[in-house]
Design a protein around this nucleic acid. Structure first.
Lengths: 222, 222
DNA sequence: CTTAAGCTGACAGTAAGCTGACAAGTATCA
DNA sequence: TGATACTTGTCAGCTTACTGTCAGCTTAAG
């Protein structure tokens, strides 16, 4: 899952970036409103964590412009301002959630998970497919209660495939979701990850089917 | 917009109900978890405002059962419990938002508007013919939910035939549609592709009929 | 019957995808 | 801190599948 963090406080920024990355997100970071706005005009994200007090262009404005371009990407607003006025303004401008500083990391991450989920799945914390159950909060995947022992990449990949279940996911899409801007990776890396994932899924009757020229999709083996 | 309020505190319940009604929602109210759960099993809402502390069946349980039935209706949790534990639990169970008492009415309403605003997920465009369903975004074709396993060429060809359904499509038209300007391909290549496509379609009662000298058309076999 | 149009099995060049081996980077733990 | 295991990207060589060509056959119209 690809996440954009827009935050000018350097300490908070670094802490959040590290923790998001550790949680398996592909994270891009911007430290001012103007560059965030520019980036958002051509790059899609699964979720955006947006500070309101930003240099050059404040968070309200970034949000407003994002929505005016028709984007439905979920946005979580982060701010020091505790008062209701700003919450209401943020939500009415099209934010999907709001968290006041100081906050607990666990809560922020839970809310992010909730936002991502709601876009794609029915909203429950686990995604199921056949015997597979993927727990988005612990980021673990079990098949018939047996843990699969997936690595971070494999988890992220499987999560994406499960979210799109039975639909084709292109290699480009996978790359986009798994990698942030700076890290450039070949399509072959995706093939390798798919290959590794297959070895772990096959024993459980789940197949990653190749649709030549288009991408991959998750299917039940019979 | 149809809204369900589940709240056992009589004073709060009355106040919210009046205010929601005033804001133009069609409001139903339930005062315990069990009846709310029952109601939700057959009635659809646009948004649900759910208290956690409820008699008979708590809010967590109501939410869990709602999601397990596959419902995607946005749910806003309302509760006296301020601690992070419960927030995280609620969000991971599939709530879409969370508001702690005491809250301001303006904020609650803003959040409800935000929830409703997140639109419906657009279904992908499909073309149908007989038992065939062609998904233009994933470029996959199914017949009675069985994937046909078409190659890229075959898909493109079938798409064209399905678009023109029952109308004759000339070989020239097909060539034009399948090939970019530079690549030159014989008409025989089309015949070969048609032949290959037929083998995959025939088992499903779909026929590619030849109109000698004119072209091909898609028809149901009887 | 003759002839042109269309069909299809066989073949081959090519492009896409797979995977074992390796290496660089990172986390873990004594 | 150093040793260890683990992760994950790259590469190279291999396998698979697609798709156009061709040749010989079938079909339909006059």
């Amino acid at each position: 899952m690809r996440l954009l963090l827009v935050e000018d406080d350097l300490i908070l920024k670094d802490g959040l970036e590290r923790s998001f990355t550790k949680s398996g997100y592909a994270v891009d970071v911007m430290t001012d409103g103007e560059s965030a706005n520019k980036l958002l005009s051509y790059q899609e994200y699964d979720v955006i964590v947006l500070d309101l007090g930003l240099p050059k262009l404040d968070g309200f404005e970034v949000l407003k412009r994002l929505r005016s371009r028709g984007s439905k990407t979920p946005v979580l607003i982060l701010t020091a301002l505790e008062d209701t006025q700003n919450r209401v303004k943020g939500l009415d401008l099209g934010a999907d959630d709001y968290l006041a500083k100081p906050f607990e990391l666990a809560e922020l991450e839970a809310r992010i998970r909730a936002l991502i989920r709601r876009g794609v799945s029915g909203g429950s914390a686990t995604i199921s497919f056949g015997d597979l159950v993927f727990d988005t909060s612990s980021r673990q995947c079990h098949a018939k209660d047996v843990p699969l022992g997936l690595s971070a990449r494999e988890s992220a990949l499987l999560e994406l495939l499960m979210l799109k279940a039975t639909k084709v996911v292109s290699k480009a899409k996978i790359l986009e979701h798994l990698c942030s801007w700076d890290e450039e990776i070949s399509e072959n890396a995706v093939e390798v990850s798919i290959s590794r994932l297959r070895k772990k899924l096959n024993p459980f009757g789940i197949e990653v089917r190749t649709i030549r020229g288009l991408g991959y999709l998750l299917a039940k083996l019979d």
